[in-house]
Amino acid sequence: TYTFKVDNKDQAKKAAKWAKKLGLSFQIEKHGDTFKITVQ
């Protein structure tokens, strides 16, 4: 499981695209202005 934080929606979208490309499941949680992405 890999967790990282991004500062904006664009970065969150890029991370989601990357995870989908690799066939991984992911969750994006919004914490105020940051997004926490968990990829597994």
Rank of each mutant, 00 (worst) to 15 (best):
K21D: 07
A16L: 09
I37Y: 01
L22D: 01
K17D: 09
S25G: 06
I37T: 00
G32P: 02
K17Y: 10
A15Q: 02
F26H: 03
L24R: 03
Q11F: 06
T34D: 07
T3I: 13
K17T: 08
G32C: 06
E29C: 12
K5G: 07
K13S: 08
F35H: 02
K5Q: 15
T1Y: 13
T34G: 15
D7W: 14
A12Y: 04
H31V: 14
V39P: 00
T3N: 04
Q11E: 10
T38N: 03
F26R: 00
L22Q: 08
T38D: 02
L24Y: 10
A12K: 03
I37S: 00
T3S: 11
A16N: 03
N8Y: 03
E29P: 00
L24W: 07
S25A: 11
K21F: 07
L24G: 01
V6L: 09
K20Q: 12
K5P: 06
F26T: 04
A12E: 01
G23A: 03
K5W: 15
K14F: 08
F35R: 01
I37H: 00
K30W: 05
K5R: 08
K36M: 14
N8S: 13
L24K: 03
I37A: 02
F26A: 06
Y2K: 05
Q11N: 05
H31T: 14
F4S: 01
G23K: 05
K9H: 10
S25K: 12
F26C: 12
A12L: 12
I37M: 05
A12G: 03
N8P: 02
I37V: 11
E29G: 03
A16W: 08
A12S: 03
Q11L: 10
K9N: 06
D33R: 06
T1V: 12
Y2W: 14
W18G: 02
Q27H: 12
D10E: 14
T38F: 05
F4I: 06
I28M: 08
G32Y: 04
D10T: 13
A16Q: 09
V6F: 10
W18F: 05
K21N: 09
S25W: 10
F26S: 03
F4L: 04
K21T: 08
E29S: 08
I37L: 05
D33L: 07
Q27P: 00
L22S: 04
K30H: 06
T1M: 11
N8W: 04
D7V: 10
F4Y: 05
D7N: 13
F4D: 02
D10F: 13
K20C: 13
K20R: 11
A15K: 03
K17R: 13
K20W: 07
F35K: 00
L24D: 01
H31C: 15
A19P: 00
K36W: 15
A19Y: 11
T34Y: 15
D7E: 11
T1R: 11
D7R: 13
G23M: 05
Q40W: 15
K20Y: 08
A19K: 00
V39R: 00
K14R: 12
F4Q: 02
V39L: 08
T38E: 03
T34E: 12
T3P: 03
W18Q: 03
A12Q: 02
D10M: 13
A16K: 11
F26V: 14
K5A: 12
A19V: 05
T3C: 14
A12H: 01
K9S: 08
K30M: 09
F4M: 03
N8R: 05
L22I: 06
F4E: 02
S25I: 12
W18N: 02
F26W: 06
K30A: 10
K30D: 07
K20T: 11
T38Q: 05
I28Q: 02
E29W: 06
I28S: 03
E29R: 06
Q11I: 07
I28L: 06
K17P: 00
Q40S: 14
Q27T: 14
K5V: 15
K21H: 10
D7L: 11
K36A: 09
G32M: 05
F35Y: 14
A15R: 04
T3A: 05
T38Y: 05
I28E: 02
D7P: 10
A16Y: 10
W18M: 05
L22G: 02
K9M: 14
Q40Y: 14
K36V: 15
H31P: 01
L22M: 12
A16I: 14
Y2I: 10
T1D: 09
I28W: 04
S25H: 10
I37N: 00
K9D: 07
Y2T: 04
A19L: 15
K20N: 06
S25P: 06
D7F: 14
K5E: 15
T1I: 13
L24H: 05
K30V: 09
H31R: 08
L22N: 10
I37D: 00
K17S: 09
A16F: 09
S25Q: 11
F35I: 06
K21I: 08
I37P: 00
N8V: 03
A15T: 06
Y2H: 09
A16S: 07
K20H: 07
N8A: 04
K9R: 11
W18R: 04
T3K: 04
T34F: 14
K36I: 15
T34I: 14
Q40V: 11
A16M: 12
D33P: 08
L22K: 10
A19D: 00
A15I: 15
G23H: 06
Q27D: 06
Q27M: 12
L24E: 01
A12P: 01
F4K: 02
K36Y: 15
K17H: 09
V39E: 00
T1F: 11
W18I: 06
I37E: 00
S25N: 10
K9Q: 10
A16E: 09
L22F: 08
